[in-house]
Design a binder for these strands. Structure first.
Ligand SMILES: [Mn+2]
Ligand SMILES: [Mn+2]
Ligand SMILES: [Zn+2]
Ligand SMILES: [Zn+2]
Lengths: 133, 133
DNA sequence: TTTATTAATAGTAATAATTATTATTATCAA
DNA sequence: TTGATAATAATAATTATTACTATTAATAAA
């Protein structure tokens, strides 16, 4: 988790972080813009995008790219599982940790009809490891 | 896996499918367009998008939405794991199945430095289950 | 083999999401 | 307080994807 090196604290970033942390949903940048706008009416969408990017690169929030065409953000940075509806795109936290071993077959969980899961490892690839920073 | 009901087979769709199945990479729609264009110079990008969408909805290929801003496609529909580089976005298949239980901690795998993983379940949410088709 | 039907395409326009640009503002160290 | 400049607001540009529509070609029927 490469920490961001902000040199100044701004009302915009503080507000964005505070609002996204309140939510248990996974809002898009536009969603957050609409929420923060109520407190800071002159904030710009670009500022929201930039800060969400910075905050997620700093590991303070998470950026999620699933299903649809827009990125979504998660105010809970700590690792947790998600349930993603194939039909409507709904993306919610899984309350109980199913681990390990992970259940693979279809079945019910949290009232959902589970059809499968996607497991993705993240890290640094061999060719990137070779390169100097 | 809702099967597509094509009523005609076209050279365009056949070629798109043939070419993506050859690859072990995870090309974007634009990548596939460039490849197929060499064989069918008059194919349009819209046709590539439409067919990739149809093929993945039919479960014949997979649509992957990770990391970056563009969707990527996978000619291998059967379930397998991916390794995704946080630094350069490279997305490759994991050769050996690590299952189960899934290893959680950081470490080496396939020459990569693993920093974590993302597990996502897919299915139908309770409110969608209530609704008629 | 010709012809009719219409699914699917090519070409293009429109939309949506994100990123880039730049003059202005406001944080913060001195 | 003031000065340097990080960060912002406003806007333009770009990128990815989807929508539209006249034309083409896959298939079935004659
Ligand atoms: Mn979450
Ligand atoms: Mn793959
Ligand atoms: Zn749903
Ligand atoms: Zn890499």
């Amino acid at each position: 988790m490469e920490r961001a090196n902000w040199s100044r604290r701004t009302r915009q970033r503080e507000m964005i972080l505070r609002e996204i942390k309140k939510l248990r949903t996974h809002p898009s940048a536009a969603d957050i813009y609409e929420i923060v706008r109520k407190k800071l009416p002159r904030i710009s969408l670009g500022t929201v995008y930039r800060n969400l990017e910075d905050l997620s690169r700093a590991g303070i929030i998470r950026k999620i790219r699933d299903g649809g065409t827009r990125a979504r953000y998660d105010g809970t940075a700590a690792g947790h599982y998600h349930l993603h509806c194939q039909r409507c795109g709904r993306l919610v936290d899984l309350e109980k940790d199913p681990s390990p071993p992970v259940r693979v077959g279809p079945g019910k969980m949290d009232g959902w009809e589970i059809t499968g899961y996607r497991l993705e490892f993240t890290g640094i690839c061999p060719s990137c490891l070779k390169k100097k920073v």
